[in-house]
Simulated scan of single mutants.
Amino acid sequence: MIVNSTELQNNFGKYLVLANQEEVIVTRNGNPIAKLVPVTYGKMLSERWPSSEIIMESTAKYNDSLGKSTYEEFLELTKDNELRYEYIDGQIYMLASPKTEHQSALTELFGNFYNFFQGKPCRPFVAPYDIVLRTSSNQINSVQPDLAVICDLEQHLGEDGFYKGVPALVIEILSESTRRKDLVSKLNLYMEAGVKEYWIVNPLNKEITVYLFEDLNIKDSTTYKNGESALSFSFLGLSVPLNVVFARPY
């Protein structure tokens, strides 16, 4: 099946379903640019279709790469599209809906952060909220961290209503489909882009690791286990009990 990029954007869900039955070739100006294909567990799709553009992050237990694209192509794909995407190191990721365990942890974290930052100049924001970051090599990236603490919103709020700065603190909650990206790609991205502190929340083993970045390096890090309270390096007094974050949601 062959479909142009505009039709794909307008009916993406339909073509994801059709891709389970046959390959869907995507064209732009009559030229093939990408291919939607059924995924195969345990095998990287980038080894099979290196010319494709999108990384599919599904609710299943894998995280597959389909190749590179430009930032302009990412903007074209996501324009007026209700699906959620991230763009990291030239790769497009489509984000799956989070599970209950993930949302329960996020709710508890946001509640703690909201209470702590009441009356303070910084504010916590939860996904979906686009953050555009540039690395030291000037690579443009667009991410939707689970939670971000922003302290310079007034100075960096664009006329289009989007935030243009760098968060002081970012939190990502791991899932089986995102753990590699969160542990490696996003850690490097946040460090290079100027984020001061990065929390990795792991519901799988009920741990929270807090990284402190300085001069494009990891200055310090601490891993907190269930029963302890995670402490912020940057914000004195910010403390989150892990038994609350990882409490059963039912």
Rank of each mutant, 00 (worst) to 15 (best):
N11T: 03
F12L: 15
K14E: 08
E22R: 05
E22K: 05
E22M: 02
E23W: 06
V24H: 04
V26S: 03
R28C: 01
N29V: 01
G30L: 04
G30C: 05
P32S: 12
I33S: 01
I33Y: 01
I33E: 03
I33N: 03
L36Y: 08
V37S: 14
P38E: 06
P38A: 08
V39T: 05
T40M: 12
Y41P: 09
Y41D: 13
G42W: 09
K43E: 09
K43T: 10
K43G: 01
M44R: 10
S46F: 10
S46I: 14
E47Y: 08
E47V: 05
R48T: 13
I54W: 06
I54Q: 04
I55Y: 09
I55T: 15
M56H: 13
M56P: 07
E57N: 14
S58L: 07
T59A: 13
T59G: 13
T59V: 13
Y62H: 08
N63K: 06
D64K: 14
S65A: 10
G67I: 09
T70P: 02
E72Q: 12
E73T: 06
L75M: 11
L75P: 05
E76D: 06
L77W: 04
T78A: 09
K79R: 15
K79N: 14
K79Q: 14
E82G: 06
E82N: 12
E82T: 11
R84G: 08
R84S: 12
Y85C: 07
Y87K: 11
D89I: 01
Q91R: 11
Q91D: 03
Q91M: 07
S97K: 04
P98E: 01
E101I: 10
Q103W: 05
S104C: 04
S104F: 04
A105G: 00
A105S: 06
A105E: 00
T107P: 00
L109K: 02
G111F: 09
G111A: 10
Y114L: 13
N115C: 10
F116C: 11
F116S: 11
Q118W: 13
P121M: 07
R123N: 11
P124V: 13
P124Y: 13
F125L: 15
F125P: 06
V126Y: 03
A127R: 00
